[in-house]
């Protein structure tokens, strides 16, 4: 019979010690691994559940209500930070292209009848309002206000932007004559057919670059861009820059807003 190879008892003990240690280490690591992946799995399921929960909530003006609350909270913070003294960057007139993209004609489906056009102002703090609280203005009344112009970048909520040379009356000057009732914080505007409508916080509207605009590139405002009178408000996305204004009304609460009803941020402030 062949003789068994003799093992060094010291080396044998050492090898056993290492093997025992490694087994214990592997066992310990398995435990930690199980614990770690279990916690991770629970967290992942929780995150998925949170997403699913938000996604399926009752819509509030086109978005699940939790997201609408976040938009509204962002609005509160933005309004706290807003200052009328902060101006949109202005550019030299030479940088303004002659053509401006026409994106939408909502609220302007009817042909424009300049002879019929009038501006109704509702809830202004004036004694000469009619029984419904309305004042009826013509373009001549608007032109009486001081003239202001600027070249600013119109920013569409879609993401594109374009410099435009605008001219008209500052809304702040208009509101000095047709003032909101004391303590009222909002102003709404509509097209004559009320097919398009926007709501604005008065703070943004009173920023000095906000214009009741009747000129583009030094010419009368073209029909597709909202003749005879449109809103230009560089502190808001293009969606708030209402064309063909038919009515301006002051309000104590946020006035309805065409795109905010379809899921967009009501404030849409820049």
């Amino acid at each position: 019979m062949p003789e068994e190879p003799k093992l060094d008892p010291v080396a044998e003990a050492e090898a056993r010690r290492i093997a025992d240690n490694d087994r214990a280490v592997e066992a310990e690591m398995r435990l930690r691994t199980r614990r770690g992946f279990l916690a991770g799995g629970v967290a992942a399921v929780g995150a998925f559940a949170a997403w699913e929960w938000i996604r399926t909530r009752r819509p509030d003006s086109g978005e699940p209500w939790p997201l609408r609350r976040v938009l509204d909270t962002n609005e509160e913070l933005a309004r706290d930070y807003f200052s009328r003294r902060r101006l949109a960057r202005e550019f030299p007139v030479s940088e303004a292209p002659k053509e401006l993209r026409v994106n939408e004609r909502i609220g302007m489906e009817d042909p424009l009848d300049l002879a019929e056009w009038k501006l109704i102002v509702t809830n202004a703090d004036r004694d000469d309002a009619d029984d419904s609280g309305n004042n009826t203005l013509s373009m001549a009344d608007i032109r009486k206000l001081p003239y202001a112009e600027h070249v600013t970048e119109l920013k569409c909520i879609e993401g594109w932007s374009q410099k435009v040379h605008w001219g008209g009356a500052r809304f702040a000057d208009f509101a000095a004559v047709y003032a909101p009732k004391k303590g009222w914080g909002y102003v709404g505007m509509e097209t004559p057919d009320a097919g398009y409508y926007v709501g604005l916080d008065l703070d943004s509207a009173m920023q000095p670059q906000t214009l009741l605009c009747y000129e583009m590139n030094g010419e009368p405002l073209p029909e597709p861009h909202g003749a005879p009178l449109r809103l230009v408000i560089p502190t808001k996305y293009g969606i708030k820059n209402l064309k063909r204004i038919g009515r301006i009304f002051y309000s104590q609460e946020r006035p309805r807003d065409y795109w905010a009803e379809l899921g967009y941020d009501w404030y849409a402030g820049l």
């Binding site: 933005a78 930070y81 807003f82 200052s83 902060r86 101006l87 949109a88 960057r89 970048e153 920013k155 993401g159 932007s161 560089p234 502190t235 402030g269 820049l270």
Partner: peptide, 21 residues
């Protein structure tokens, strides 16, 4: 991009609105 007028100094630093986007 989000508050381009309120942070216009930042936008200028980044090279303008289109550049920032």
């Amino acid at each position: 991009i989000y508050k381009v007028v309120q942070f216009s100094w930042l936008v200028t630093l980044l090279g303008g609105y289109r550049a920032a986007r």
